[in-house]
Amino acid sequence: MSALSFPASRGPSRPGGLDTSLTRPAPGVHVLLVDGEVDTLTAPILGEALGGLLAAEPADAVVAVDLSGVGFLASSGLAVLIRAAHTAGSQGRVLHLLGGSRAVTRPLEVTGSDQLFTLLPALDELLARIDGDRPAG
């Protein structure tokens, strides 16, 4: 698994900080790890990381955002995720969201924007689905 840190990220050890990094846990699978709080101050960091991910990766790559490290998702963060889902859709793919806590999934459900994503509890489920979709041989 390889990891790249986006230079715009702030360490989550600071109150209100946000950290993002990109991993490639399997060929053709790109996961943006997000750790911290996504609010008005940190949403641009998430937006930059998602924009870079969606712009840099080939259209057939599976893209996911692991939100298991996010403890708070403000409306500004929700807007960033929605924009990224629309961008992914225009590229002919789905943006997967992984491991979101109730603090993350609730705003998605209340607004109905959960329908824009494939929500999965963890990376292993995403990888199992991908392996199930690949032809045997």
Rank of each mutant, 00 (worst) to 15 (best):
Gly71Asn: 07
Ala61Ser: 15
Pro58Cys: 10
Ala64Glu: 04
Ala56Gly: 15
Val70Asn: 01
Ala74Thr: 04
Leu73Val: 08
Ala59Trp: 07
Leu78Gln: 00
Ala56Glu: 15
Leu78Phe: 00
Val65Met: 05
Leu50Glu: 02
Val62Phe: 08
Gly52Asp: 12
Gly69Met: 02
Leu54Ala: 10
Ala61Gly: 12
Ala74Ile: 01
Gly69Pro: 12
Ser75Arg: 04
Ala74Asn: 05
Leu67Val: 10
Ser68Trp: 07
Ala49Cys: 10
Ala56Ser: 15
Ala49Lys: 01
Gly51Gln: 09
Val63Asp: 07
Val70Leu: 05
Gly52Val: 11
Ala59His: 11
Phe72Pro: 04
Leu53His: 07
Ala56Ile: 11
Ala55Phe: 09
Ala49Leu: 05
Ala79Cys: 11
Leu50Pro: 13
Gly52Pro: 13
Gly77Asp: 00
Gly77Tyr: 00
Asp60Gln: 15
Leu50Thr: 05
Gly52Glu: 11
Pro58His: 10
Leu53Ser: 03
Asp66Lys: 04
Ala56Thr: 15
Ser68Arg: 13
Leu54Gly: 09
Glu57Asp: 12
Val63Pro: 14
Ala61Leu: 11
Ser68Thr: 14
Ala61Met: 10
Leu54Asn: 07
Ala55Asn: 14
Leu67Phe: 10
Gly71Val: 07
Leu50Ala: 04
Glu57Gly: 12
Leu73Ser: 02
Ala55Ser: 14
Leu54Ile: 10
Val62Arg: 08
Asp60Ser: 13
Ser75Asn: 02
Pro58Phe: 08
Glu57Ser: 15
Ala61Lys: 06
Leu73Met: 06
Ala56Asp: 15
Gly69Cys: 06
Pro58Arg: 10
Val65Ile: 11
Gly52Thr: 14
Ser76Phe: 00
Ala56Val: 10
Ser76Glu: 01
Ser75Ala: 06
Pro58Asn: 11
Leu53Pro: 11
Gly69Arg: 03
Phe72Trp: 07
Asp66Gly: 08
Ser75Trp: 00
Gly51Val: 09
Ser68Asn: 13
Leu78Gly: 02
Val63Cys: 15
Phe72His: 08
Gly51Glu: 08
Ser76Cys: 03
Gly71Tyr: 00
Gly77Met: 01
Ala49Pro: 14
Val62Thr: 15
Ala79Met: 06
Ala74Gly: 08
Leu67Gly: 04
Gly52Asn: 12
Asp66Tyr: 06
Asp60Trp: 11
Asp66Ala: 03
Leu78Asn: 02
Ala55Trp: 10
Gly52Ser: 13
Ala49Asp: 02
Leu73Tyr: 00
Leu67His: 05
Asp60Leu: 09
Leu50Asp: 02
Ala79Ile: 05
Ala56Trp: 07
Glu48Trp: 08
Leu53Arg: 08
Gly69Glu: 05
Leu67Pro: 09
Phe72Leu: 14
Ser68His: 11
Leu73Arg: 00
Val63His: 02
Ala56Tyr: 11
Asp66His: 04
Ala64Arg: 01
Gly71Pro: 03
Glu48Thr: 14
Phe72Gln: 08
Leu53Lys: 07
Leu78Cys: 02
Leu67Thr: 06
Glu48Asp: 14
Gly52Arg: 13
Ala61Trp: 02
Ala59Phe: 08
Asp66Gln: 04
Val63Ala: 10
Asp66Thr: 10
Gly71Trp: 00
Leu54Met: 09
Leu67Arg: 04
Asp60Met: 09
Glu57Lys: 07
